[in-house]
């Protein structure tokens, strides 16, 4: 499954995470370091399986935990209109 970052999203990458604005809803979010990694992979057009594999390789985390966290974030981003 692949998603695309919404054209309404504006991102500021920082050394400890990122802040994402939704210019349509006028809401904004901060992402921690791992969330920022997921966001960057989504920007690179990575699919969900690819993102989970990358996180499992880069962090000390079980695949099932990584998948659950990624899905939770993706669902929230979809709800907020930041992913389409």
């Amino acid at each position: 499954m692949r998603y695309r970052i919404s054209g309404d999203a504006l991102t500021a990458m920082l050394s400890d995470g990122a802040v994402v604005l939704n210019l349509h809803s006028k809401r904004y979010f901060s992402l921690n370091e791992t969330g920022t990694r997921v966001w960057a992979l989504l920007e690179d057009n990575s699919g969900l399986d690819e993102i989970v594999q990358t996180l499992t390789a880069e962090y000390d985390v079980a695949e099932s935990d990584a998948r659950r966290e990624v899905m939770a974030l993706v669902e929230e981003l979809l709800r907020e209109g930041l992913l389409v």
Partner: peptide, 22 residues
């Protein structure tokens, strides 16, 4: 792995539409 998203914060009221805001 910590939670990925921190809590959102809404800063505007109403129903913003592109190029319309309050």
């Amino acid at each position: 792995m910590p939670g990925l998203a921190q809590s959102p914060a809404a800063i505007a009221t109403g129903e913003p539409v592109t190029h319309e805001w309050r």
